[in-house]
Design a protein around this nucleic acid. Structure first.
Lengths: 159, 159
DNA sequence: TTGTTTAGTGGACAACATGCGCAATCGGCC
DNA sequence: GGCCGATTGCGCATGTTGTCCACTAAACAA
């Protein structure tokens, strides 16, 4: 249920230079091409690697404002229909149900602070949403990353 | 500062089948190969596409618990040294500074609820952190996605 | 010990994609 | 009309992919 040191190196290599082919990877890692192919296939099959999609920066598209919105929902209706409606809003990038006083946690983006108000209004209009609370992300000193975790996973497995 | 409808289709296509080559993309989109290459180069240059790194699922690595931790920090020290120390913890996937009563917002993962306690302890030990508050993500009805935004961006530009 | 399974290696092959440059064409725009 | 950037269609040499194969090495159970 975990990964190898070679797996970790392979992921790190691909993360650093994603346009690399299988052959080039095998050369840099000092293993046979078939091994790299097998490892990639296995990790894809196990769900460790879910894809190689292009990483798009919303800020470069003009969505320079990021905010986190927590929701309280009418518990009668359940959270699934609410989530479905939230999913219909393009500016809602992510939705989680959470523990604590609130029920849901969303990441949203907008073109400006004024535009954020529009997006929040869309969320408030969702049937089942009772109350929202927003905080704006001012800066992102650590952008989303998995590499340190990947580098650590083999160690965790051994120890 | 925004993207084309063709750009959007190209990103959507690559997101759906990331292993596709440039030539195959050009065939499916009904344009010349050079056009696809030019578009990809331009989007990469503009920062719209930041990379093609392998998407790793922490859950598949055994990190099945996701939590959001908000921090209050000692304002004297500033947030940069705190962020640096947080960045040294592999389980901390993301850090933002935020508006509101708290100062920072982190996404963390752990192998279990008990393991989450260990990670939170690591965060509390960070010099400058005064108080933390955590919520656990129970479910993720909308996982992180940018495609709807990408599909919407050309429309926003026109209208 | 022996036999079995699994992972890795090194090599080969045809088919295909890539990076590159080039001339021609299209569309908008002054 | 004349200019410009974007796009097209083309060809070339080179490198890569997918897919075979036989062989070795290590782990493990009987």
């Amino acid at each position: 249920m975990t990964i190898d040191h070679l797996d970790a190196r392979l992921i790190a290599l691909l993360a650093a230079e994603p346009r690399l082919g299988v052959l080039e990877c095998s050369r840099r890692l000092g293993v046979a091409r078939g091994t790299v192919q097998a490892r990639l296939d296995r990790m894809a099959a196990r769900g460790v690697i879910t894809g190689y999609g292009p990483d798009v920066d919303p800020a470069a598209l003009g969505y320079v404002v990021t905010a986190f919105v927590t929701l309280q929902i009418r518990q009668i209706s359940g959270h699934v229909p609410v989530a479905d409606q939230l999913a219909a809003i393009p500016e809602v990038l992510e939705v989680h149900t959470i523990t604590g006083g609130d029920d849901m946690h969303c990441r949203v983006v907008a073109r400006s602070n004024a535009d954020l108000q529009r997006v929040i209004d869309l969320i408030v209009e969702v049937h089942g949403v009772v109350r929202t609370s927003s905080v704006i992300a001012l800066d992102t000193p650590v952008p989303y990353r998995v590499l340190p975790l990947v580098a650590d996973a083999p160690r965790q497995a051994k120890g």
